[in-house]
Simulated scan of single mutants.
Amino acid sequence: MEGPYFIEHGDVWSYTTQPGRPSYVGPNSRHVCDGTEELAIALVGDTMMKHGSAKSVDAWAEKKASGFDVTIIRFPVSPETVEELNKCATNTTRAASIVARLEDIGKSRPELASLPRFPR
């Protein structure tokens, strides 16, 4: 699936239209996280407010979301989780059901069986 996030050389990258330093992956790519880190989304109620690397989602929650009841859902990098993140990023109403989708991914991939994770 082509979307805002993709895996290249084991790391997660994002397509961007913003000018910046060109990466070795391409001039329209921004490094999100390496393959050993986690991705995450932040939900306020059923609305996805932030998505990307777990570090950037945590930083957003600390700065911007004080006073809101924020749920952060973390998950490891895999082709399946990146595909689901892309689907949520393009259809933010889908994010409300990401927990069930991550659980389904965990059932089919034993190494991902601990999906999803709620650090907060």
Rank of each mutant, 00 (worst) to 15 (best):
V25W: 01
S66F: 08
K87R: 12
R30A: 11
T36P: 02
C33M: 03
D69Y: 06
E37M: 04
S66W: 07
G35W: 00
S23M: 07
A40R: 00
L39A: 01
R74V: 00
T36H: 07
N91P: 07
F75H: 01
E37A: 06
A40S: 02
E80A: 15
R101G: 04
H51W: 10
V82R: 00
V99E: 14
S66T: 09
Y24M: 11
L85H: 01
N86D: 09
F75N: 00
D69H: 05
R21K: 14
K55T: 03
Y24W: 13
S29N: 12
F68E: 14
C88N: 10
T36C: 08
S97E: 09
N86H: 03
A42K: 02
W60L: 02
V99K: 12
T71I: 09
V44I: 11
E37K: 04
D46K: 15
A42S: 08
P22M: 07
K55R: 12
D58N: 10
S56D: 11
T93N: 11
S97Y: 12
G52W: 00
D34C: 09
L43E: 03
T90F: 12
N86M: 05
N86K: 02
E37I: 01
S29G: 12
V82G: 00
A54G: 05
E80C: 05
N86E: 05
R74K: 10
I98D: 06
E62D: 14
T93I: 13
V99N: 09
T81G: 01
N91W: 13
G35S: 02
T36K: 07
T71K: 08
A65G: 11
M49I: 15
T36I: 05
V32P: 02
V25E: 02
T71F: 03
P19R: 13
A96L: 09
K55N: 05
R74M: 01
E62P: 06
S78Y: 01
G20S: 03
T17I: 10
E38W: 04
E103T: 14
A96H: 09
I73F: 03
T81Y: 00
L85F: 03
K63D: 12
G20M: 03
L102V: 03
S29A: 15
N86C: 07
P19K: 14
